[in-house]
Design a protein around this nucleic acid. Structure first.
Lengths: 231, 231
DNA sequence: CGTGTATATGACCACCTGGTCACACTATGA
DNA sequence: TCATAGTGTGACCAGGTGGTCATATACACG
């Protein structure tokens, strides 16, 4: 179980923790700032104050370095979602959607650079092993929303006349755009989410989930839990 | 009125139409493939079979070349949306949302490379004049959905208990993700939109708008305004 | 023809990239 | 003390970048 990562050389794992963390931090910063192709190993080593040759003794090449931080990213994502959800398992479908949203916000708050890397990879075509890496994340989407929707559908909590895949797509679009807007002001539609407090953010999420639940048309606002009577 | 563009030098505008189009086409292709920073002028001139010096007589520098194609992009967007909507002005709110969606699909079908450039700019930070360019587009979002929502809200067609900005955000998230999924298979949530026919795509849009209108909960297909899809 | 002007050209520049490698350093163990 | 092994180093490489400029060419007008 000592095999922490196949991307890093043994030399790297033998490094003192402090140095290892510094290298990871700087590497993540550079990839987040510039994406894969434009990220400069020269800048990384300069900022770290180490020789380029050293970096190449820790990692085979640029690709291995990148894969390493991406692996870190996937670990952190899964950890954060698990932590944010596992503690209390609400039964209500929309509450659970909300929990995922909040966990996601927590993640981008805590690890903004990692999230930037993910966004960059999404729209940078010539990243090595891109498909494999993205498939490994498929951020929150199918693994979580899939079972959630199917269960709710079977229980009759959500409508049955729309394919589950379509519902997942909408939830995913909603979540992803919410995160993107949170990080990139251009995408928040003027909501100013970037500067919101956690409390305001939670209120916004509630507001939006309300619309998702009842639609653009319905005006009445009844209980926030469970489904109200049909009709 | 002859001043077509401030980004291109006079020399470029004097060029024969055919050559001008070839240059634009290849430039758009390269920026779409590689984003701003990684796009190579050397590759552009090689593919065009012209000398690098020539390109620099048409455009001051890389930035001017990029701004030129981005200006083209904004023109084409506005044109396409106008064409797709102006002809028949449906009164129904959701029909008009659908029309925007279809116009957007038409755009990315017709000008996929221009759309790629837009996506790249969205997630590439060090693009010159990025904020200005993105603000100029604010793709479909506020300029169109804003008035639409406000009108519908005043007429009582959509709920009044949610701020318009929030509704716009949801519509925008929906549209943007739909387009991104259409172009990038990773983001379609397994729907396989990339390979859908126009007819199937339209059906999917109907399906999703139905959810937006009535929410995740309602199963019955009634609606407030009556006609649903094809009646 | 000659002359002037607008355009086309590609060698060339400084700078940066990812990657290499011969060498220096350090620490252990005997 | 020597030897071995692990680690650190930075000059160096080939190849790419955006950008320049002296020169060659094409074309107009007299």
């Amino acid at each position: 179980m000592k095999k922490k990562s196949s991307s890093a050389n043994a030399t790297f794992n033998n490094l003192p923790l402090e140095k290892r963390e510094a290298i990871i931090r700087e590497t993540v910063r550079e990839f987040a700032a510039s994406g894969y192709q434009k990220a400069s190993l020269n800048i990384i080593v300069k900022n770290l104050g180490i020789a380029k040759g050293s970096l190449y003794q820790y990692f085979r090449n640029k690709e291995a370095l990148f894969c390493f931080v991406f692996e870190e990213f996937t670990h952190l994502v899964k950890q954060t979602v698990k932590d944010g959800i596992g503690q209390e398992r609400s039964a209500d479908f929309f509450d659970r959607v909300k929990q995922v949203m909040l966990a996601a916000i927590t993640f981008v708050d805590r690890y903004p650079d990692y999230f930037q890397i993910y966004l960059k990879v999404l729209f940078e075509h010539d990243v090595p092993r891109r498909e494999e890496l993205l498939a490994r994340v498929r951020l929150f989407s199918r693994e979580y929303f899939g079972p959630l929707c199917e269960e709710a559908r079977e229980k009759g909590v959500i409508r049955r006349d729309i394919p589950v895949a379509t519902l997942i797509f909408l939830l995913d679009a909603f979540l992803d755009r919410f995160l993107q807007g949170y990080v990139q002001p251009y995408l928040d539609g003027g909501l100013g989410m970037a500067k919101m407090s956690r409390k305001k953010l939670t209120a916004k999420i509630d507001e939006m989930i309300k619309v998702l639940r009842d639609g653009f048309v319905k005006e009445r606002d009844k209980g926030s839990k469970g489904q109200r009577g049909k009709g």
